[in-house]
C-alpha cells in the first residue's frame, strides 16, 4: 500500500500535464462546419481518455522500472504471486464499460453528423482522375470551384467516373469516398466564411497528391451574386467553342491535357489543331478534324510518340455524342 499514494498522485499529475499538452498544441485546422463541432467535441473526449490511459500505463511502468529494479548484490527472486482474479475482472469490466460508452457516444454523434436536414441543398461533386467538378442542379450549371453559402445545409452527392476518390475538406472534418457506380452522400453545413481546399483522400493514381479544388464559403449575398454570374455565363456558353470549353472541364480532359503548352499526361491542346504529330509507329499525321475525332473515340489507335498508351479512357465514344465531340474539336481549334 505504500506505493498507492505516490502512484496515484503521479498518474493524476501526468494526466493533467498530458491533457494540457494536447490542448496547447492546436492539433487541427480551424473547424468550419456544424458537423465539425460534433467531431471536435468527440475528439476532445478521446484526447482526455488518451491522456489518462497513457499516464496510467506509463507511470506505473516507469515507477515499477525504477522502484523494483534489482539492487547491486541482491540475488533473490521477485514476489511470488500468480495474479488476481479480482483485478483481472476489474480491468476487463471497466474498460468494457468505457468502450461501450464510447460506442454509444459514437452512435449518437454519428447520427447527428449524418442526419438529413429539411432545407438542405444538393450539390453533385463529380470526381475524375484528377479533377473535381461541381454540378449545381438547382441552378443548372457546373463549376470547378466549390462555392457554398454560409449556414446552408448542403447534401453532397459524390460520384466517381473512373476510380475511387474521396471528398475531404479538413476544415469541414467529415469525409466520404466517391465510388464508381454508386452515389455516396455527405452532409456538411459550413458555418465559417473563408477559403479552403478540397482534396482527394483516396489514392487514385499518378496525380493523386494534386487532386484539389478550391472551396469558398461566402455570405448568402455573395453566393447569390456568384450564382447569377454563373447562370449568365452558362447562357453565353451556347457557341460550339464555349460548349467545348465546358466539356473540357466537365469531362475531365483538363486532368491530362494542358492549354498552355505544358506536358501533363497527354499532349497539350495549345496549337494542336493543324500541327504535325509524330506517332509511336514512326509516321506523322496532321492533327485535323478526323484525327482529333479518332483520338477521342479510339485513343489507342494513333498514339503520339512520347506518351503512354492505355491511359486515356476508351469509352469517350460512348460518353459523348458526336455533337459534343465536334464542340470539343471546335474548342481545340481556338487554342492557337
Amino acid at each position: 500500500m505504500k506505493h498507492f499514494l505516490p502512484v496515484t498522485a503521479l498518474v493524476v499529475i501526468s494526466t493533467f500535464l498530458v491533457a494540457a499538452g494536447i490542448d496547447s498544441l492546436h492539433l487541427m485546422p480551424q473547424n468550419a462546419s456544424v458537423q465539425g463541432e460534433t467531431v471536435d467535441w468527440l475528439f476532445g473526449l478521446h484526447f482526455k481518455l488518451i491522456a489518462f490511459l497513457f499516464s496510467l500505463v506509463i507511470v506505473i511502468m516507469v515507477y515499477a522500472v525504477v522502484v523494483f529494479r534489482r539492487r547491486a548484490g541482491d540475488d533473490g527472486e521477485g514476489m511470488h504471486f500468480h495474479g488476481s482474479g479480482t483485478l483481472e475482472f476489474i480491468w476487463t469490466v471497466v474498460p468494457a464499460i468505457i468502450v461501450v460508452f464510447f460506442g454509444y457516444i459514437g452512435t449518437t454523434t454519428l447520427i447527428t453528423v449524418t442526419a438529413a436536414q429539411p432545407d438542405e441543398v444538393a450539390i453533385e461533386a463529380v470526381s475524375r482522375q484528377w479533377v473535381w467538378n461541381f454540378n449545381y442542379p438547382d441552378d443548372g450549371f457546373s463549376s470547378e470551384e466549390l462555392y457554398l453559402p454560409v449556414g446552408q445545409p448542403i447534401r453532397f452527392d459524390l460520384k466517381a467516373m473512373d476510380v475511387l476518390h474521396a471528398f475531404w475538406v479538413p476544415e469541414f472534418r467529415v469525409k466520404a469516398d466517391a465510388v464508381p457506380g454508386r452515389t455516396n452522400v455527405l452532409r456538411i453545413t459550413p458555418n465559417r466564411i473563408g477559403e479552403y481546399k478540397l482534396v482527394c483522400a483516396e489514392l487514385c493514381g499518378t496525380r493523386h497528391a494534386y487532386m484539389m479544388a478550391p472551396v469558398k464559403v461566402v455570405s448568402r449575398e455573395a453566393y447569390s451574386a456568384w450564382v447569377a454570374q454563373k447562370v449568365a455565363e452558362e447562357a453565353a456558353k451556347n457557341t460550339p467553342e464555349a460548349r467545348g470549353a465546358a466539356l473540357y472541364i466537365s469531362q475531365g480532359c483538363k486532368g491530362c491535357h494542358s492549354l498552355d503548352g505544358s506536358k501533363i499526361v497527354g499532349p497539350t491542346w495549345k496549337g494542336l489543331y493543324g500541327s504535325p504529330q509524330e506517332l509511336t509507329d514512326g509516321t506523322t499525321v496532321i492533327a485535323d478534324d478526323e484525327y482529333l475525332y479518332n483520338s477521342i473515340v479510339k485513343p489507342n489507335l494513333q498514339v503520339v510518340a512520347g506518351y503512354p498508351a492505355n491511359v486515356m479512357p476508351q469509352n469517350y465514344g460512348e460518353l459523348l455524342t458526336d455533337d459534343n465531340i465536334n464542340n470539343i474539336i471546335a474548342y481545340i481549334k481556338t487554342l492557337k
Binding site: M28, V39, H46, I50, G106, V113, R173, E202
Partner: peptide, 16 residues
C-alpha cells in the same frame, strides 16, 4: 491512437 479511428464520427476525419 486506435479508438479515435474506431469511433466513426472521428474516423470520418482521420480516415486515410
Amino acid at each position: 491512437t486506435g479508438p479515435p479511428a474506431a469511433t466513426i464520427t472521428t474516423d470520418l476525419y482521420l480516415h486515410d
